[in-house]
């Protein structure tokens, strides 16, 4: 089993071609490699491709092997080097984001009523990129 001391978490953006969308790819991944997964975002594009933001947890070697396996199947694998950041100067602490952020990464801290951002809870759904009234949420490359 996983040795928790060597556990790492890595996020990937996976794009599935339309012929793979109906295959149990992720399920197989867990069976073949010693990794666990967390689906952060799942969408189907207008070209009927599947786009998945996946977080894999496990030791470094099985995670790399799992990613290589996905590429062999024809999945486009991008290790996620983008992150959503809060531009403190642009935030006016209005709280609009608390209404739409699905993971609680953006929330109003009470009673101060300040907006706080916990990046570790962000599931990269990207809603804040258009939902924030002052465009204070930005995509940045790590």
């Amino acid at each position: 089993m996983n040795d928790s001391r060597n556990q790492i978490r890595k996020r990937f953006v996976l794009v599935f071609p339309s012929d793979l969308v109906d295959k149990p790819v992720i399920c197989e991944l867990v069976k073949r490699f010693d990794v666990t997964f967390n689906i952060l975002t799942a969408t189907i594009t207008s070209e009927r491709e599947g786009r998945l933001v996946l977080e894999l947890t496990g030791a470094s070697a099985p995670i790399s092997a799992a990613a290589e396996h996905l590429e062999r199947l024809g999945v486009a694998v991008d290790s996620l080097n983008q992150e959503v950041r809060l531009n403190e100067d642009a935030c006016m602490h209005c709280g609009t984001c608390e209404g739409f952020c699905p993971s609680g990464a953006l929330r109003v801290q009470r009673p101060e009523m300040r907006v706080v951002y916990d990046e570790s809870k962000c599931i990269l759904c990207e809603r804040c990129l258009t939902g924030c009234p002052t465009h204070a949420m930005e995509f940045r490359f790590r």
Binding site: M92, C94, T96, E98, V108, M113
Partner: peptide, 23 residues
Amino acid sequence: LKRGEVTVDGRAIPANPISSLVM
């Protein structure tokens, strides 16, 4: 509202501001 939860129809519902008390 400022506590972040209101009761409507006997149901507890999260409340979020869109105006800034900080400002």
